[in-house]
C-alpha cells in the first residue's frame, strides 16, 4: 500500500512510520492484557487465598483498563487534556459511588 502512494509527502511518511511503531506497542499491550487475563483466571482456578487474590485481581483489572484507555483509546496522545479531566472526574465520582454502596449499605 505504501508504495502506491508515491506522491505522499515526507510528513505523511513520517506520521505513518510513527503510527506503525505505535501499532507495535499496541500489539504488545494486547499480549500483556491477554497474559493478565489468563493470570487472573488461573488464580481463581488455583484456589489461592481470598485476601491475596481479590486485591491482585483488582490491580490487574485496573492495569488492563489503563492500557485500554491510554493506548487503545489514545489518551496518551496530545489534545486529550480535557477528556482526561472529565474522564477522571467520572472515575472519581464512580469511586465515591461504589465506596458508598459497598461500605454504607450493610443492613
Amino acid at each position: 500500500m505504501a508504495e502506491k502512494v508515491s506522491g505522499a509527502t515526507e510528513q505523511f511518511d513520517f506520521e505513518k512510520q510513527k503510527r506503525k511503531d505505535e501499532m507495535k506497542q499496541q500489539v504488545i499491550t494486547f499480549v500483556l492484557m491477554i497474559v493478565f487475563t489468563i493470570v487472573a483466571f488461573a488464580m481463581i482456578e488455583a484456589e489461592l487465598d481470598r485476601l491475596f487474590v481479590i486485591p491482585v485481581l483488582l490491580v490487574l483489572a485496573a492495569i488492563q483498563v489503563g492500557f485500554q484507555v491510554y493506548y487503545f483509546m489514545h489518551m496518551s496522545h496530545k489534545g486529550h487534556e480535557l477528556p482526561a479531566v472529565m474522564f477522571y472526574g467520572g472515575v472519581f465520582t464512580a469511586f465515591l459511588t461504589i465506596l458508598a454502596l459497598t461500605v454504607l449499605v450493610w443492613w
Partner: peptide, 25 residues
C-alpha cells in the same frame, strides 16, 4: 464530537459505577 464523546464516557463511567455499586451491595 471527539470532545463531547469523551465527556459522555466520563458520564458513562458513573452510570456503570452506580450499577456495580448496586451489584456489590
Amino acid at each position: 464530537k471527539f470532545m463531547g464523546f469523551w465527556f459522555f464516557l466520563g458520564g458513562e463511567t458513573v452510570l456503570f459505577a452506580s450499577l456495580f455499586g448496586t451489584y456489590l451491595a
